[in-house]
Amino acid sequence: MAAATDNPPADITENLPDLPPSTLLPPLFNNTNPPPELLTQGAEALLYRTTYLVPSIPCALKHRPSKPYRHPILDARLTKQRILAEARVLAKCRREGVNVPAVYALDWEKGWLLMEWIEGGTVRSILDRWLHSTPVGVDASKRESELKDLMSRVGQTVGELHRAGVVHGDLTTSNLMLKPVSTADDTLASSHEEEGKQHQEQREQHLQGEVVVIDFGLAMQSVQDEDRAVDLYVLERAFGSTHPRAENLFQEVLRAYGESFKGAKVVLRRLEDVRMRGRKKSMIG
């Protein structure tokens, strides 16, 4: 009679060799001073803040590291494919007038991408702040209309994204940013002057600014209603789980989406099917 736990199998990682961590910076950035600042570490990629060309131009560095468990040939192939796909999608979106970070530089062999730094906060953080309390200087009814307007712009932006033939693949409120309106800028070098105090206050009272979509690591080029509907479904589920009180606000997102391009209403109908099917084919667990 053996206890099930007699001689439990060892943790498999204990017998494996020590390898350099996959979270090291790409070699080029080891020279950088100050070193790039790590912002997020996902399963797929690491995101840093650093500069492009000169200190006055901030940028985001996305690095898809080599994965130690993959065969090196497969690893190189996947890394290259994915960073390229992301860069292409970003460039395509920007070309079509969708608000996404611009691509500055790329090294697909080394798996890194430098792109425009987007100032501002995520829609997620805004909703967290604005749903739980009314910010200083804003009255309650104004708050409602500001939020509604923001939702409308979110819906419109997602519509523009889909119209450009791109599906995001991971639409959550953390991947939507609100970039404050800046004064006229012509070239990169002059676009990041210090914001005046006036702008700062304005930003906190009004949800002005452009909605910018970020993180296209799972994006793909598609015009299928199904893919677009799943995109919306993921965003809807994200709303539901992270901002449970915002469900009626999401209706505004869908309404604005429905009016953003020809064919959007068909996608909304498809969304109903996706909802009924539930988990299969969507990404939120």
């Binding site: 970003l90 611009a102 691509v103 500055y104 790329l106």
Partner: peptide
């Protein structure tokens, strides 16, 4: 009008940077 022109120039610049980055892929 002037601001629109400057914006257009900036968009042109970033589009160029994107094309340069993707060249040869």
């Amino acid at each position: 009008g002037n601001q629109a022109e400057l914006k257009e120039r900036k968009e042109l610049e970033v589009a160029i940077l994107g094309l340069m980055a993707l060249r040869g892929a």
